[in-house]
């Protein structure tokens, strides 16, 4: 069954195989570069996320794609939809900001400039589809802070992210897809 392919392989020669491997690697590398570049521009560790839960229904459903930015100079406002990650929790959560409280830094003897800084903001969030706010989700914290926030939702594309959810739910699909792509990249003649 694989005799034909093997013969083709020998006909193409070792250099061609190497070239295909190189092509494959450059595709992966440019993908990674685009992802990290987007992260730099948007100041967010993951500028595109997939909605994993139904707590923001009917605004966002499972599998919707969200585009995030997180400008350091911009404060969070109520009504903003943020993606946050609590240390210790493994998945990020997409919820809407319910309360913001600016905290004026106390003037300390060591840093007198602290008062002119933007200061910290304490945030409380809530999912549109949840009855109560998120205090229970914060794992002991009373408020969210900027360091927990991955980004603010700016744009929205429905359904597209469902591919990744399907791949997580059925790992066989993931391996089949990766293997198929890899094989195609190696065998293709042009």
């Amino acid at each position: 069954m694989f005799g034909e392919e093997l013969k083709q392989f020998q006909r193409l020669g070792f250099r061609h195989v190497l070239l295909q491997v190189l092509n494959f690697a450059s595709v992966i590398a440019s993908g990674l570069m685009i992802w990290k570049g987007l992260g730099l521009i948007t100041n967010s560790e993951s500028p595109i996320v997939v909605v994993l839960s139904g707590s923001m229904e009917p605004a966002f459903y499972r599998g919707d794609l969200l585009f995030l930015t997180n400008p350091a100079s911009e404060k969070y406002k109520t009504g903003d939809i943020t993606v946050y990650k609590i240390p210790g929790a493994d998945i990020p959560i997409v919820h809407r900001v319910l309360e913001t409280h600016d905290v004026v830094k106390k003037k300390s003897k060591r840093s007198k400039t602290a008062l002119t800084g933007t200061g910290e903001q304490l945030l409380l969030t809530k999912g549109d589809n949840n009855e109560v706010d998120d205090i229970e989700l914060y794992q002991g914290l009373d408020w969210l802070e900027r360091k927990h926030i991955v980004g603010k939702v700016r744009g929205f594309l429905p359904y597209v992210g469902y591919v990744t959810i399907a791949m997580n739910d059925f790992p066989q699909l993931k391996y089949a897809l990766l293997g198929g792509l890899g094989l195609l990249a190696l065998v293709q003649r042009e």
Binding site: K77, T78, G79, L98, E99, T100, H101, D102, V103, V104, G119
Partner: peptide
């Protein structure tokens, strides 16, 4: 203290 607060 002059700090801004917003509450929905």
């Amino acid at each position: 203290q002059g700090a801004k607060n917003e509450v929905v």
